[in-house]
Every structure is written in structure tokens, then in C-alpha cells.
Design a protein around this nucleic acid. Structure first.
Lengths: 128, 128
DNA sequence: GATATCGCTTTCCCGGAGGTAACTAATATC
DNA sequence: GATATTAGTTACCTCCGGGAAAGCGATATC
């Protein structure tokens, strides 16, 4: 005695589960800076002030907070070298490598999105 | 007369550009609900109250605001049918399909991340 | 036509994210 | 002891996400 309703239930549950996975990801990767920082540090390890210059728009306070978050969640490691004025190097852990595909797809999408927006402006219509 | 510095400049510029693409993507997809909503509506078009029930934790006000944002950015369409108490159906546009890969990778990552966290708790150590 | 209900929408409010600018601690140099 | 460098921290402020609850337009009921 299958009904349409019964057939929809598994699809619904599956959808709710998938959304939960996406929300789990967003929970640790929320905000404006997590993805940009992980991407940048995956290119090469950097010092605090180097990140400040490379990641445009970020401020010392926000950077310090984001780096703390990322370290707590196992994405980066903070290495202190007792040199003359102290050198602190931030580098990504292997766990950040698991984000490779996400970072790639996000970057690709952002690139085509920028192009689409530029075209919309040229054509003087926002969408459709 | 190449120096190490000169060789690093293109890589730096390339990195800054890629980060810009990622930031462009995050600009329209920021917050807790954009990805979950696009994913859910890509599964099937839904009415306002159906979304409220399906996307756990979202409130009417926040949902209305997010739906407005998503419509303005061309991700979804709001269709009104003049039935007895009025039916409003929200459905994704073809532009949302361009996010397919991003949504897939984000969901995959979130799933393995949840598993990793559960293991960390079992083993009583947070990372490393 | 007064009242109730459904399907959103708006108002009010709080807390936290994130920006600005100035300050600090440790060492080295002058 | 004044100044510079590195790696932040602190105080202050604004804006936005998001929760609670009321508002509102259209129909259904009496």
C-alpha cells in the first residue's frame, strides 16, 4: 500500500541529512575569512604580517582571531621560532588538504560569477 | 637578472587573484542559510511553510530575508499562484545549477568532517 | 459583517562578527 | 634611554544575523 507520501519520505530524510552535512561544513568554515586564509596558507606558509599584506582588507584583530579558530579546528599550525624579534610562521596541516576540491570549486564558481556580473552590467539588466 | 623575489611575484599575484574569486563567491553565498536553501530547493520547489519545516532551525523572518537575497541574486524564482489562500512556490533557476559541484564538494567534506570529529571525541583527543 | 485561520511580513531587540586605531612586550640598534 | 621591528592585544563602535512576537491581507465560517 504505497502512497505518494510514503515515497517522498526517504527523499525528504535524505535531503535533510545532506543539508546537515553542508551545515556541519559551514559551522567551522563560516565567515568572510576562513576560506581565503586556508587557500592562501596552502600556497605557502607565512608570517603574521605577511598574511596581513597578502590577504587584502583583513585587520590584525580579525586575523589573530581567525588564525586562533583555524588552529583550534586543526586546519593550521602555529610555529614559533625564537629569533631576534621572534618569528611566528603559520602553515596548513594535512587536514586542510581535504578542502582542496571545495576551494577549487568555490574559486572556479567565483570567477565565472564575476564574469556573469560584469556581463549583466554591460547589458544593463541584472538577471534573466 | 632574475632574483628569487621576482620569481615569487607572479605566484603572489596569482594567489591574490584566486583569493579574490573565492571572496566574490562568498560575497553572495555568505551566512548560515544560503547553501542549505539552494541545496534544498534544488531537490524540489517548495512553499514557504514547507521550507520552514524542512530546513531545521530557520525562522520565518530569516527565511523571508534569505529568499529575497537569493531571488535578487538570480538563484531562485518566486512564483505566486492566485489560489484560495494564495500559493507561493520558490524554485531554483538554472543559475543555481552552476553551484552543483560546490554543493556536492561541501556536502562531501561536511560528511567526512562530522565523522572525523566523532572519532576525535571517541579517542579523547581533539586533533593531531 | 464580525471572527478565525493561513501564509507570509514586519517590528523590536540582543549578541556577536568584524572594522579602526591606538597600545604593548620583547629584543636589537643607535 | 629613544627608536624600530614583530606579533599581536585592547577599547570602542557599527552593522547584521537571528529569535520572539505582533501585524496584515485574503479567504472560510458563522
Amino acid at each position: 500500500m504505497k502512497s505518494i507520501v510514503n515515497e517522498q519520505v526517504p527523499a525528504k530524510q535524505e535531503c535533510i541529512l545532506k543539508v546537515k552535512h553542508i551545515s556541519d561544513a559551514l559551522y567551522v568554515l563560516n565567515g568572510k575569512w576562513k576560506f581565503p586564509l586556508i587557500f592562501t596558507l596552502r600556497e605557502s606558509p607565512l608570517r603574521f604580517n605577511e598574511i596581513l599584506q597578502l590577504v587584502e582588507g583583513i585587520t590584525p584583530k580579525v586575523l589573530a582571531k581567525e588564525l586562533r579558530d583555524l588552529e583550534m579546528n586543526g586546519f593550521i599550525e602555529r610555529k614559533v621560532y625564537p629569533t631576534m624579534p621572534v618569528t611566528v610562521i603559520y602553515e596548513t596541516t594535512p587536514y586542510s588538504d581535504t578542502l582542496k576540491n571545495v576551494l577549487y570549486e568555490l574559486g572556479q564558481w567565483g570567477e565565472q560569477h564575476r564574469e556573469k556580473i560584469r556581463e549583466s552590467i554591460r547589458n544593463n539588466k541584472m538577471d534573466k
